[in-house]
Amino acid sequence: MITATGITKTFKNGDVITNVLKGIDLTIDSGEFVAIMGKSGAGKSTLLYQLGLLDDPTSGTIVIDGTRTTDLSVDDRTAFRLNELGYIFQDYALLPELTALENVMVPLLMQGKTTQEAKDIAHTSLVRINLGHRENNLPSQMSGGEQQRVSIARAVAHNPKILFADEPTANLDSESGQAVIEIFKDLHKQGQTIVMVTHEKEYTVFCDRVIHIADGLAV
């Protein structure tokens, strides 16, 4: 499903050059639940951004489901993210002026679903994670755990091939974090490919595989 070869990422800040990723090769199969772990600053989130097409690697190639994504134009990458990928961010990243339902509807509408279709799918997604009763609430009216669950609903409502999660439990208490992981376990059971960055080892026990990043390399 994902084949990354020789991924490097270098940041330049004036005269300071930082090599965050130094040539990572990895393969993730369809339906796998993979955790990326590493110390702070090891480059695990940077790797996730490259795999998730949110950033361009300095060198190397990434092939997702047969598409060499590093060769795609900006517009094609946007369309690819819309149709093939889903994202969950550490700070939920919900749009504050949209209700839970509307947040989930946005990518569906962008895919060309009618408003009613998008509403129905978003509603089903929210009900699936036990947030049906909160669908008309704004993010500011929900707890952190609830917001993260809405974020998950938004990420999976359009049935992406791969779900990327960047430390999805980092801002949550243990109970909410556990609830999020339970949702991931359910999604995984249904065959969803998941790539999750985390620094919490206890959550990796549910993963098929853990990729450790240290000093810009997969170890």
């Binding site: 946007t78 749009l95 990518p107 962008m110």
Partner: peptide
């Protein structure tokens, strides 16, 4: 800006 980035990140076109 952050939310504009998120919209782009989840696949919403710049035109939208």
């Amino acid at each position: 800006r952050k939310f504009i980035g998120i919209l782009k990140g989840i696949g919403v076109s710049p035109l939208a």
